[in-house]
Amino acid sequence: MDRTDRTKAAEFEAMRAKLFALAYRMLGSRAEAEDIVQDAWLRWHAADASELRSSAAWLTTIATRLAIDRLRHLRIERATRASAWMPEPWIEGLAPSAEDVALQAMQMSYGLMLLLERLKPEERAAFVLHEAFDCDYAEIAKILARTPAHCRQMVHRAKERLKRAGVPLKCTDKYAGKRGEKYADKPADKPADPAAHARIVERLRAALETHDRAGLVRLFCDVPSVISDAPETVDAVATAEQVAATLAMRSRGDQVETVSMNGAQAVALMRDGEFDALLDITIGEDERIVALRIVTAAIRLAPATRVFGRAAVMRLLQPVSSQAASVTMRGHFPVDIDA
């Protein structure tokens, strides 16, 4: 490998985590994101470095366009599935990777990730670049080969569609409104208080752990929105009482834990040290749960199990255990380490 190749390899590695985070936000899948990063690397390796003005801009553009093309195909595949498609949850592990760190800095909630499926591929790209990666409209225009005004319109239209779906969006546009743009952002709905959200998640965990069905009913609004990748679950729920009954039955025999999922607290149902289900919630102003998302498909839970399941935790603890460290257990799941 000559000096130019080494320099290109180093520049790509410096961007890898950001490219992965961008592709994951676009596609909702680790595997698909990894494929995009690999394709970007192949194109980067073949490119003439002397003709590139900015490696970061070039790689971001290539990764975005690859993700848009892949998303167009995935939307057709996902629309033909019998069960509802849901994004792969991102569980922040005990030993965060570079991708974990990048995602934490560019976080979008799981509920928002799910609703991004409503956007057209280019709208989604513009929204993700603007909201999660803080790109201005001039940068987005170069990436998407559109005018800045068109990109501003796409982001505005995406925000309006998401707000109509009940998503509280925090405005991050530092430029809109300063020069009288046509698509200046309107005041956004106030996002849920993270402390309040975490408090309700803990109450949900406790109610599930103690099989407190009445307590579960009190946590939900009268008619919560429920989305699941298991059609029979959605068909069985409509009211708070039905949701409580379904969750009580679903969690029977499971270990109930709280985890950090896409930057917010969520409930994990675990069986034999592996993820059995993930419960993500949205709360209203009265701190009752207005939306519940249930992920049960093994293919979407497998990555979380690999990085946060019992086997992964025990592997992580092996070097510590050899030095006689103590591990506090709750049920079968290690939650505290005293080195």
Rank of each mutant, 00 (worst) to 15 (best):
A188L: 10
A198M: 06
A196S: 13
H211M: 09
P148K: 03
V243H: 11
A244K: 06
P168Y: 00
A230Y: 04
C171M: 01
L216N: 00
G215W: 00
V237N: 04
R164G: 04
K190T: 13
Y137N: 07
P168E: 00
D212T: 07
L219D: 06
I227S: 06
A145C: 10
G166D: 02
T172V: 13
R161G: 12
A165W: 01
A165H: 02
L219E: 01
K159F: 01
A145T: 14
P191I: 07
I227L: 11
A176F: 08
C171L: 07
V217E: 03
V217H: 00
V223A: 14
F220S: 04
C171P: 00
R164F: 01
P187A: 11
V234L: 10
L204I: 02
V223I: 15
D229T: 03
A188G: 15
D235V: 12
V167G: 09
R199W: 10
S228C: 08
K159E: 13
R146T: 15
A206F: 12
V155A: 05
T210R: 14
L204C: 01
H197E: 11
A138S: 14
K163H: 05
P194C: 05
R213H: 08
R218H: 12
D189I: 12
E139Y: 11
E160S: 14
H211F: 14
R164N: 08
D235R: 15
R213W: 02
E160I: 14
D193V: 05
A145I: 12
A176S: 14
D229L: 02
A207Y: 11
